[in-house]
Amino acid sequence: MKVIRCLIRGCSVLSCVALWQLASSLHANLGVITFRNVPPPTEVVESALALLKSPKLLAHVGSSLWRVFAGYGAAAVAGVAFGFAIGRSRAAGDLLLPPLELLRPIPAVAWIPLSILIFPSSELSMIFITFIGALFPIILNTIHGVANVDRRLVASARSLGGTSTAILFEVVLPAAAPSIVTGLAIGMGTSWFCLVTAEMISGQFGIGYYTWEAYTLQNYADIIVGMLIIGVLGMGSSWLLTTFGQALMPWRRAVETR
């Protein structure tokens, strides 16, 4: 049964690729959309192989990865710290939450023009956009996790002699961990999204820039190669995060496999 289902799924993907090949080689015009300028899969594979061999790939992917690492990393640290402060202390909540609530509805992408003005280099402004994109989901999920810790567990820990510091690390942190990891996963997605957009607008190097450059230089096959690489990078980073989360929370797996 399982083999047959896998076979069906594989065929489904293959037939999509085949339809694409057919449509682009016929330069099909479907009215609303046209495949006149869309390269067929065979050309895409060729371009991808060419890119794989050239040193450009490493430069583009490397600079995108670095930006995500810096911006997302800063957002993870700041988001978890702010989230803890706001979730644990009413004073911190009153002090920090109102400005954050005001900024939250502004999409990260809308920050691009201002951040170009604020930061001395476009590199820093792109990192900032990545940071802003990831910050809010991480903060909000951390607050949610920290504020919803079962108060009975905290009471129990106090009855067993736990000090406030011990309770923070032994009870609140692990209790909030699933929420924090959810925030980190959502933040990872938005931060890639924001980065690619920022790179298209103000980048030099970076996979978003590569994709946009391919469009302006009319290397249409490279557009799709760029899209695919962005997809792979996004998938890879969320896989890393899930694996990391599972390794960090073995008790969650114990529940599932009971």
Binding site: L153, S156, S159, L160, W251, V255
Partner: peptide, 20 residues
């Protein structure tokens, strides 16, 4: 004056730490 391990309490629903 406050909770202490001198006065242990067991609740109706267990309060074991799920991660330990």
């Amino acid at each position: 004056l406050g909770p202490s391990p001198d006065r242990g309490i067991v609740f109706q629903q267990h309060t074991l730490f799920p991660w330990k």
